[in-house]
Design a protein around this nucleic acid. Structure first.
Lengths: 197, 197
DNA sequence: CATTATAGTTAACGAACGTTCCCTATGTCA
DNA sequence: TGACATAGGGAACGTTCGTTAACTATAATG
């Protein structure tokens, strides 16, 4: 953790606290303390509390832009339904449990009604990003003949929506991780069997 | 609107305000004003602000208990996939746009990380209630031979999850209602075609 | 009629909040 | 070295917040 700027420490601190108590539930003094300084010193780095949140959202936007922006890189296209399940499970394990990603999800959830920017970003996150990636994967799997022919857009929605809901559940109730992972696996296996060639 | 108690006016006022600005974003004075009295008078009806929220959550719990509690009443079982689509669309139109229901959803969304009670309720709402109803409907439709045989539990998840996400989107971005309704219809038609006998 | 409980008011409290002002220490650059 | 910019801290500000206390009007009860 060498050479991390004060600004970054403030943002990390705010990411954690906002994700746990919401924007309104956290005072600037607490953010500052967690970053190793005093409340008023924040104003040397940000114009105000709101700008800290805005900057966090900026980062999320950049991340999604780089991830799902121009062209989608689904990585290796699975060569069988079994591989699809394996690869997807690993991807979800990561996305679900990665600290920064989870905190970001929780902030979006809590602040999604605050302004249009966050609303739109949340919609894109929950309904476009990952779905678009799987649409592409399914298209190629169908072309390769390892998956039954069907509307790839609808299939992607059907594949990702239950997972999105179960990840939301994990964010709420991390104690039920085992149950949630099993539900995801069960659904994946159902899907794999249903759309096998 | 005859004979509505002050207590109920307070609860209605809080339902609206909490759903728009979140629990922390609303002061007791504002709740009171909207209910036609002054802030401190609230304390003649509730022990404190938190108890107002708790009472609202009580109501939600009662509602879900009565709706999905002991035995599920799916009403008329559709006699064709076309009827399934029609009936489901009407149900969603209502659920999605009913004022009190929408506000309740938004409060659950905003306060879902506040305590275990709300977390559990939200999970039940998003992942159990409606899904259980459709599991039963699908079972009976399969038994009646108007739907292809498949795991009804998985089918219910696949059917309801995209809708839940699209309703969440409507709560965030009501302006996009037309687009959202069309997406729901498209998915329903895909599902109907996919699981026709 | 006298008493008491209830529902409302105003005033005020203490705490927390976001923010500004002013000062100091430190490092940079001419 | 001297001038200046930067990052931090302390004190204090004006607000807002949830809540309590003390009082009043009204209605129900004996």
């Amino acid at each position: 953790m060498a050479n991390v700027t004060t600004r970054d420490r403030i943002l990390d601190s705010a990411l954690t606290l906002f994700s746990e108590k919401g924007f309104d539930g956290v005072g600037v003094d607490l953010i500052a303390e967690k970053a190793g300084l005093k409340g008023p010193s924040l104003y040397k780095h940000f114009k105000g509390k709101e700008e800290i949140l805005d900057t966090l959202i900026d980062r999320v936007e950049e991340y999604y832009e780089s991830r799902f922006g121009s062209e989608i890189h689904p990585g290796q296209i699975p060569s069988s339904m079994e591989e699809l399940v394996d690869v997807s499970l690993k991807r979800i394990q990561f996305t679900m449990k990665d600290d920064a990603i989870q905190r970001t999800r929780r902030i979006l959830t809590l602040e999604q009604f605050r302004n249009q920017r966050i609303s739109g970003l949340t919609s894109r996150h929950n309904l476009e990003g990952v779905k678009g990636m799987y649409r592409k994967i399914f298209q190629e799997m169908m072309a390769a003949g390892v998956m039954r022919q069907a509307d790839p857009e609808m299939l992607a929605l059907s594949f990702t929506a239950p997972i999105t809901l179960l990840i939301q559940m994990y964010d709420r109730e991390p104690d039920r991780e085992a149950e949630i992972m099993e539900r995801i696996q069960t659904y994946f296996r159902f899907f794999a069997k249903e759309y096998a060639v």
